[in-house]
Amino acid sequence: MRILVVEDDAVLGEAIEFALKISNYAVDRVGTGATADQVLKRHTFDLVILDLGLPTVDGFEVLRRLRARLNATPVLVLSARDAPDDKARVLDLGADDYLAKPFSVNEFLARVRALLRRSQYGPAPRVLREGVSYDAVTRTLQVNGRVLPLSPREIGVFEVLLQHFGRVVSKEQLLERLYGFDDSVTFNAIEVYVHRLRKKLENTGITVRTFHGRGYQLDHGHPH
Rank of each mutant, 00 (worst) to 15 (best):
A83Y: 11
L218I: 01
D97K: 08
P123T: 06
K200Q: 14
R69K: 07
I206D: 01
V185H: 10
H212N: 10
L175D: 11
V143H: 04
F187H: 14
D28Y: 05
A83C: 05
Q173D: 03
A10D: 13
N71A: 12
L66C: 08
G166K: 02
A19R: 06
S119F: 01
M1D: 00
V132C: 01
F158S: 02
A72M: 13
K200I: 04
R117K: 07
G122I: 09
L93E: 09
F158Q: 05
F187K: 13
G213V: 03
Y121T: 13
E191R: 15
A136Q: 06
A189T: 13
L201Q: 04
E107P: 03
R65P: 14
D97F: 08
R81S: 13
R139C: 11
V39S: 07
D9K: 09
A124L: 15
L128Q: 06
L93A: 00
A36S: 11
G122H: 09
L162D: 12
R113L: 02
L162Y: 09
M1E: 03
H222D: 11
K171N: 09
L40K: 04
L116C: 05
Y179C: 07
V105P: 00
P55Q: 10
F60I: 03
A114M: 11
R196L: 12
V160N: 01
L162T: 07
G145K: 15
S133T: 05
F187S: 13
E202K: 12
L175F: 12
D96E: 06
F18P: 00
R214G: 08
G94I: 03
L40P: 12
L91R: 02
P223F: 04
G122F: 11
R42S: 14
G166N: 12
L76M: 08
G59P: 12
R81E: 14
V27E: 00
A110E: 15
D28R: 04
Q142P: 09
S119K: 04
N188T: 10
T207P: 01
L161N: 05
A124D: 15
R129K: 11
K200D: 10
R209S: 07
L52N: 01
Q163Y: 09
P55R: 04
R129M: 09
